[in-house]
Amino acid sequence: MATDAGGRTRRSSTGLTVGVAGLWLSIIVLLPLAAIAAQAFENGPAGFWDAITVPAALDTLGITVLVSVVVALVNVVFGVIIAWVLVRDDFPGKGFVNAIIDLPFALPTIVASLVLLSLYGPNSPVGIHLSATQPAVIIALTFVTLPFVVRQVQPVLMELDQSVEEAAAVLGASNRIIWMKIILPALLPSILTGAGLAFTRAIGEFGSVVLIGGNIPGKTQVASQYIQQQIEIDEPVDAAAVSVALLLIAFVALFVLRVISRVQTRREGSE
């Protein structure tokens, strides 16, 4: 009886926990998403489609996706390199470098935009003028999204068994073969997760590009700035429609990367 009672208590406790988690998730995530979706479709599916297919909306969505893909790819390359250096190499100031990786998480993004404008704006102290260009937008977004890849890859690298790499080297495998056949497959799920997080953060970013980007329609205006513009001209339905389009893009990107990561994980497990 005691065991049964204990089992019932544990099940009740689990049910309560799930209920609280579901309620909190609904309040914080699901209800706001439902509200923005309802507003986006206020004029029906045809109105939603018209709002996201006008030339200005298509331009801003295209620019946003393009620069976000570039940012994700750049962060994959340099994020993996930084994670590798932090895990496998020892050098003076390593602890400091490891600490500042998380700085973009703590720094207000508008401050990042101001710093980048001071560095690459019209009065650039280094003679590099990128203000109001797409490279400036890419740099700003790369700055705020770099930690996602580094912090996803770093713990996986720390857990890798280096004896396998050493054994492969003893057997004559080159560094390239060791990287491609042993290290990369193990890191791929975390790399994809980091890339997905970097991409989805980039497509919704506002503060870091608001000053350095210039907000030029058809050139540097990203979706978040377009949404703000629609609200300022009293077009909340159009703003909501573009917001939902961003949500759909982010969901599809994360879903595809999650599936690829799961397939890769299963393949590694079967081997």
Score class of each variant (00 low, 15 high):
121 G>C: 09
96 F>Q: 00
75 N>K: 05
128 I>D: 03
99 A>V: 10
77 V>S: 06
76 V>T: 13
154 Q>H: 08
147 P>L: 09
108 P>V: 06
98 N>G: 15
82 I>P: 00
75 N>W: 00
139 I>E: 02
86 L>H: 11
97 V>R: 01
129 H>Q: 11
126 V>Q: 04
87 V>Y: 10
112 A>H: 04
114 L>H: 09
111 V>N: 08
116 L>A: 13
109 T>V: 02
132 A>G: 09
118 S>N: 14
102 D>L: 04
97 V>T: 05
101 I>Q: 02
118 S>M: 05
155 P>N: 09
95 G>Y: 02
153 V>F: 08
111 V>P: 03
117 L>Y: 08
78 F>I: 15
138 I>Y: 00
133 T>G: 15
139 I>F: 04
130 L>N: 03
85 V>S: 11
101 I>R: 01
152 Q>A: 14
131 S>C: 03
145 T>Q: 07
104 P>Y: 06
97 V>P: 00
104 P>A: 03
117 L>N: 04
147 P>V: 12
88 R>N: 11
89 D>P: 00
156 V>E: 15
100 I>P: 00
156 V>I: 15
164 V>N: 07
87 V>L: 08
122 P>W: 07
87 V>A: 12
124 S>A: 11
146 L>I: 15
85 V>C: 15
125 P>S: 05
101 I>A: 02
108 P>M: 08
127 G>M: 13
154 Q>I: 05
97 V>C: 12
90 D>W: 15
146 L>E: 06
74 V>G: 07
137 V>K: 01
